[in-house]
């Protein structure tokens, strides 16, 4: 399972990077979402998957799944949500101000 997930993480990163390298603001936002997905699952995968029960102590299990990566990912999840929303609004605002979402046209002038 870990190997399969590693490959999935790789695919997430690959497509995320590809979208980051495009010129459309929207695609870049999508790319960032995929990258953060990739990062979350990378964290989870590295700690080992599917071992034991969920980390709820009242289950009285012999072995629990590792709670620490889950806590980390939970934090990261919320933060990337904040970031995505902000980016979306930022691109909306950029479009309103400049009437384009093409980064080729949004680049600064050479003398800046």
């Amino acid at each position: 399972m870990e190997i399969l997930m590693s490959i999935t993480v790789g695919v997430l990163f690959m497509v995320g990077t590809y979208l980051l390298l495009t010129k459309s603001l929207l695609r870049i936002v999508l790319g960032l979402i995929l990258l953060s997905h990739g990062a979350h699952f990378l964290l989870l995968t590295m700690s080992g998957l599917q071992s034991g029960t969920p980390p709820l102590l009242n289950l009285n299990s012999e072995a629990y799944a590792d709670p620490l990566p889950q806590a980390l990912v939970l934090t990261a999840l919320v933060i990337s949500f904040g970031m995505t929303s902000f980016l979306l609004v930022l691109s909306y605002r950029t479009y309103k101000a400049f009437k384009t979402d093409d980064l080729e046209q949004l680049r600064g002038s050479a003398d800046e």
């Binding site: 870990e2 590693s6 490959i7 790789g10 497509v15 990077t17 390298l21 990378l42 590295m46």
Partner: peptide, 14 residues
């Protein structure tokens, strides 16, 4: 570049 990044992350994870 993007394939490179993907492969790299897989290798790092493994």
């Amino acid at each position: 570049i993007s394939i490179g990044v993907g492969v790299m992350m897989t290798l790092v994870a493994l």
